[in-house]
Design a protein around this nucleic acid. Structure first.
Length: 313
DNA sequence: GCGTTCTAGGAGCTATACGC
DNA sequence: GCGTATAGCTCCTAGAACGC
């Protein structure tokens, strides 16, 4: 049935039909619903128009349902219960809540987020499913259209319908192989860093988005040469480990177990120190009042505050 | 744009006719 | 006689029209 036809159906008609089917008597059905017998008779008339069926035939005592009415009687209780549940469903309970959340995230961040997040969800909200979507150029549009729920974003958008919750300030770190010439240099200069190739670990499709390190260099009128692009952190670290290339990433990447002794952190030159970018959680405004989204937002904020702090220097 | 008035339609009421 | 259907009425509400 089309939505316009559906909109013409008065839900009260179905409630009345249910009572009529139970009582099989117009007068008693009217008493149960606190209306007069003629009013109930008129409602029955409207029900007959709606279903294009007499629904009941008169008998010496009360009414006898037609086959169509008996058929409706099989479905009405479940239907009315479902409507009742829909209306009264106001309390969010993570233990029973069923939903699939889609979160767009740059993999470097996803590495440190989804492990602890899913561990908590498994315990507290076992019916919630999370789909991690790779951050791309179209992520903002997807957020606006509702095809994703959240995006771990590198900067606040100008889009008025997108809410941005700051999670942490991010100062990138430079990773290199342990035998890299800069590994032992205590105070490398900016030009020292720019003399080497870089591995760009960032979504390859996000052409217009600029990694934090690149935007910092832009502010200084500099740029780096990236000779390898990948969105896969493990692959990126493998390339760094087996070449003299450098890689810039968020500071909490130092917590990653993927960083073994074959990789070291390079000191940032003084020009880059103190230049930070805020990473935040973006979501469309229409989900701000959703208890489930609020709950997950708090979880993500708590986890990032706990796990995105650098433990390893 | 906002508030007031008018109007049409829906729903319930009483009284009463009709059917089983 | 009991229960249902209908007629005619009133009341309420939403939308349109109008004036400020």
């Amino acid at each position: 049935m089309s939505p316009d036809k559906l909109s013409r159906i008065d839900l009260n008609l179905l409630v009345t039909l249910q009572v009529l089917l139970e009582e099989r008597n117009v007068t008693r059905a009217a008493e149960r619903l606190f209306i007069t017998q003629p009013a109930m008779s008129r409602t029955l008339s409207r029900l007959r128009d709606l279903f294009d069926d007499p629904l009941f035939t008169r008998a010496a005592r009360g009414l006898i349902p037609t086959p169509r009415a008996e058929e409706l009687q099989e479905h009405l209780p479940d239907l009315l219960n479902a409507v009742g549940n829909l209306v009264s469903l106001t309390e969010f309970d993570p233990a029973t809540y069923e939903h699939t959340f889609r979160i767009a995230v740059v993999e470097q961040f996803g590495q440190s987020l989804f492990g602890p997040l899913m561990a908590e969800l498994q315990k507290e909200a076992p019916n919630i499913v999370v789909q991690a979507i790779e951050y791309t150029e179209g992520t903002e549009d997807m957020l606006a259209k509702g095809s994703i729920d959240f995006a771990i974003d590198l900067e606040k958008t100008d889009e008025v319908d997108i809410d941005f919750l700051p999670l942490l300030s991010n100062q990138p770190v430079i990773i290199a192989g342990s035998k890299h010439p800069l590994a032992s240099k205590k105070k490398p200069k900016l030009q020292d860093l720019l003399a080497y190739n870089y591995v760009r670990c960032f979504p390859v499709d996000a052409i217009k988005s600029v990694p934090v390190f690149d935007s910092m260099l832009e502010e200084l009128g500099e740029q780096r040469h990236c000779f390898f692009h990948t969105s896969n952190l493990l692959t990126a670290l493998q390339v760094v480990q087996n070449s003299d290339a450098l890689m810039a990433g968020p500071a909490f990447i130092l917590n990653s177990e993927l960083l073994d002794k074959k990789l070291v952190k390079i000191e940032l030159p003084k020009e880059l120190k103190g230049m930070e970018k805020v990473i935040g959680l973006a979501q469309h405004r229409r989900t701000l009042t959703s208890q489930a989204h609020q709950w997950l937002t708090e979880k993500i904020a708590t986890i990032t505050a706990k796990h995105w702090v650098v433990k390893r220097k």
